[in-house]
Simulated scan of single mutants.
Amino acid sequence: MLAQYVHPSKAGLFRIIRHGRQWRALCEEQEIGRHETAEAALIATRMACPQARLPGGLAQWRYIPELALAHSRVSGEGTRWRLAG
C-alpha cells in the first residue's frame, strides 16, 4: 500500500490511496472509485457520500506517507491506528 489520506466520520473511515498512477477512494473496505488525482478522488467521495460531511480540502485530512505505512507493517501494528478527530 502506498501513501494515503484518511478521515474518520460517523459513516466510516474514508481513505484516498495512491494505487499506481491512480488514486482509489474508499469508505471502510468499499471502493467508491478510481481517479487521476487525489483531489478528483476527494470531490467524487464528497459527492457520493454527502452525509459523511467530509472536509473540502486534502490539507484537512490526515496524510500518511508510504514510509510510515512500510514501518507500521514491520512493527505489526498495521494501519489500525486510532485517528484523532
Score class of each variant (00 low, 15 high):
L83K: 04
R62L: 12
R73F: 12
R18P: 05
I64S: 05
G78R: 09
A41G: 14
G12I: 09
I16T: 12
P55H: 07
L13T: 15
F14P: 09
T45Y: 00
L2R: 10
A70K: 13
I32T: 00
G85M: 05
I64H: 03
G12L: 13
F14M: 08
A11I: 01
L58R: 03
R80L: 12
A3Q: 10
H7A: 04
R21V: 11
G33W: 03
R73W: 11
S75Q: 12
P55G: 07
M47D: 02
S72K: 11
Q30E: 15
G76N: 10
R34Q: 14
R18K: 15
Y5E: 02
F14A: 07
I64G: 01
R21E: 14
Q51R: 10
T79N: 10
A52M: 05
E36C: 03
R18L: 15
E31R: 08
V6A: 13
H71G: 05
G33S: 06
E36T: 08
C49I: 03
Q4L: 14
W81D: 10
L54V: 05
R34W: 04
V6K: 11
C49N: 02
A59L: 05
A52H: 03
A11F: 01
Q4M: 10
S9A: 15
M47E: 12
L58A: 06
I43E: 13
R53D: 12
G56C: 07
H35I: 03
V6G: 02
P55A: 09
C49T: 01
A11G: 05
T79Q: 12
L67V: 11
I17V: 15
A44W: 03
I32Q: 00
E66A: 13
G20E: 14
R34P: 02
M47G: 00
G12Y: 11
M47T: 01
G56L: 04
L69E: 09
L13Y: 06
A3P: 01
C49Q: 11
G12S: 13
W23A: 00
A41D: 02
P50Q: 06
G12K: 14
A3W: 01
G33I: 08
H7Q: 15
T79G: 09
Q30D: 14
L83C: 06
A84K: 08
G20L: 14
H19G: 06
A25I: 00
A40M: 11
G57R: 11
M47L: 10
K10G: 14
E28Y: 01
A41I: 00
S72A: 15
